[in-house]
Design a protein around this nucleic acid. Structure first.
Ligand SMILES: [Zn+2]
Ligand SMILES: [Zn+2]
Ligand SMILES: [Zn+2]
Ligand SMILES: [Zn+2]
Lengths: 131, 131
DNA sequence: GACCACTATGTTATGACATTACACAGCCAA
DNA sequence: TTGGCTGTGTAATGTCATAACATAGTGGTC
């Protein structure tokens, strides 16, 4: 069912669902679509998501309490990923920028701030929707 | 009670509470602390917050569903503000970086993405807590 | 094989965050 | 004085996330 054979059943179900979605999904939306597969409680989804986030196979969009499958698995070890989210069609673009990363790290170094995790989300309209 | 005479009563109450807090507050935490002032429902707080956000007097921290008073009101028309949030003591540092803004705008221009709003939140530990 | 530690799972209940819907009051301009 | 606009009060509901507890498989060690 999925190309991720090292995943558990629930993890595979959730990741598959995310990969087939054309927009970010909330945990409860995922759950609703996996009822037929035997999932019945939110925690089953949240637990699977937690692992997928750890593995970098999915991302959480803080600004909308939703989740997406990673667009370029294993391709962003930069430690800083930015998301552009179209509020009209839901399309999410994932990218990283070394200059931005440098600037933020520079600020943190000067301030003595120890960075654990950074989120960067741009909301707006994609080219197609803005036209 | 507040230096913001153009605000309504509820807005002043909420902003005062945020300004006196030493860490971000959830809407419900604000509500709890304003019971004595007559506030009784979440919506009263959320409505006040909505206006304060519009006016730039407060900010929402998406990564923790909480709110802070703006640290430098009227001082960041850059349109892009970054927050560094200490997960230990709750201290929030607010800053902006023109280079970062340029880079993100550059990406958006190339992609034809129309930016409405950008959130940038760094989680970690401040100098004092990391020591 | 018996044991133990570790990870995953299933289920119920609860907690935390946010909005919808409706009613009412004040203000100001037409 | 009427109508539009903004702010307010209240109840009910919707949405997102976790705590607590019980169970089951897996793999290593003795
Ligand atoms: Zn990714
Ligand atoms: Zn779009
Ligand atoms: Zn500010
Ligand atoms: Zn700290």
């Amino acid at each position: 069912m999925s190309a991720h054979s090292d995943l558990t059943r629930n993890q595979s179900l959730v990741l598959d669902r995310l990969e087939k979605a054309d927009a970010p999904m909330s945990a409860y939306a995922i759950l609703d679509q996996l009822r037929d597969d035997g999932l019945r409680a939110p925690l089953q989804v949240y637990r699977a998501l937690e692992k997928l986030l750890d593995m970098g196979l999915a991302h959480r969009l803080e600004s909308m309490n939703a989740f997406v499958a990673c667009a370029q698995p294993h391709c962003h070890d930069s430690g800083l990923i930015a998301f552009a989210i179209c509020e009209k069609c839901g399309q999410v673009s994932e990218f990283s920028d070394d200059v931005v990363r440098e600037r933020l790290n520079g600020w943190a170094d000067r301030e003595g701030f120890v960075v654990k995790r950074t989120t960067m989300e741009i909301r707006g309209e994609c080219r197609a929707c803005a036209a």
